[in-house]
Design a protein around this nucleic acid. Structure first.
Lengths: 174, 174
DNA sequence: ACGATTTATCTCGACGTCAAGATAACGGAG
DNA sequence: CTCCGTTATCTTGACGTCGAGATAAATCGT
């Protein structure tokens, strides 16, 4: 059995400072949520660096992977894409415009709903995303190397509990 | 003893879709990291909503809390602030400008280093941040209500492990 | 059929962030 | 004391996102 050494991260210091300044408040929620926010920020930087070598940007990747995951014929509506990526509709329109200009997706009217359009991955987009994704997974595995398999599973399960309420009630962007 | 029901979040669906489309890849890193990113995004929305009622914005809060935590005399350099908030120097300059214009902080030259300046919380800024912080903690506690105390502690510990490498090697923004 | 409501997407202006570079001052080596 | 690399902050321009509103079509109740 290994005992955890007193290794501190920035959040430990942050919480200690609050206890000093506002001993009347219970700041334990920060132990979890502040770490989530900060880790996410660090991850975003890592992603950006990882993608730089593949000539792809973070936001492009998010959209292309959603289409890639959808499977044949790699086609989704803008609405489905914005729900998958947690951005607003204006943002998604803009993203699709730029991806189409880059030849990574095409846009065509939905034959079954004349309000809608369908966004489809091109072969070029497919190749781009598959290459970048493999590399991303490799780098992410390294970031998790500090945790045992079972710890990763436990962490995933705990995070899922927090996430379910958001993903159940419609967390759709407008 | 309670058995966990098969409650799914969006990441479960996302991982399942990848296994279908790319059975050759091991996508388990996403179980953790994708949840961190998505949860952070949801949290940011919650924060924005919470702050709306206090006439304060998310980015303002981040800067003001850093100063508040610092304790008497509630004064830090821009450099310290950008390290605390994980933004770049240009962003921080801009933020301080706007906070100063709003009368929530003041800026004065550092008497000991003529390159530097010191940013200090005003009484108005202090009041603003203390009110908003109490409310934020209340809301965050609700978000964590789905987890027992010991689960929250376990989650915090696991996240710390992932965070330490970033916070140890200088994760400073430029 | 008709009108009201909902849904899907796009338009546009305001805003915050980033990245790179400019400026100025510090601090150690010789 | 001077040179030079480093550090601290600010400036600037490009860019991506948001949020509110516009447009158009589908859906539902009567």
């Amino acid at each position: 059995m290994t005992f955890s050494r007193p290794v501190e991260d920035e959040v430990d210091r942050l919480v200690a400072a609050w206890k000093q300044e506002r001993p009347d408040l219970d700041v334990t929620p920060l132990e979890v949520l502040s770490r989530v926010s900060r880790l996410s920020r660090h991850l975003e930087r890592e992603r950006r660096a990882a993608f730089a070598s593949h000539d792809i940007e973070s936001w492009e990747f998010d959209v292309l992977t959603a289409l890639r995951r959808a499977g044949e014929p790699y086609e989704l509506s803008p609405g489905a894409l914005l729900r998958a990526t947690l951005v607003t509709s204006g943002t998604m329109t803009n993203r699709i415009d730029r991806l189409a200009a880059a030849g990574l997706v095409t846009r065509r009217p939905d034959p079954e709903d004349r309000r809608g359009v369908l966004v489809r991955l091109t072969p070029a987009g497919m190749h781009r995303v598959d290459t970048a994704f493999a590399d991303l997974l490799r780098r992410e595995r390294e970031l998790l190397a500090g945790l045992e398999q079972h710890e990763q599973q436990a962490l995933a399960a705990l995070l899922r509990t927090l996430l379910v309420p958001f993903d159940t009630s419609d967390g759709a962007a407008h």
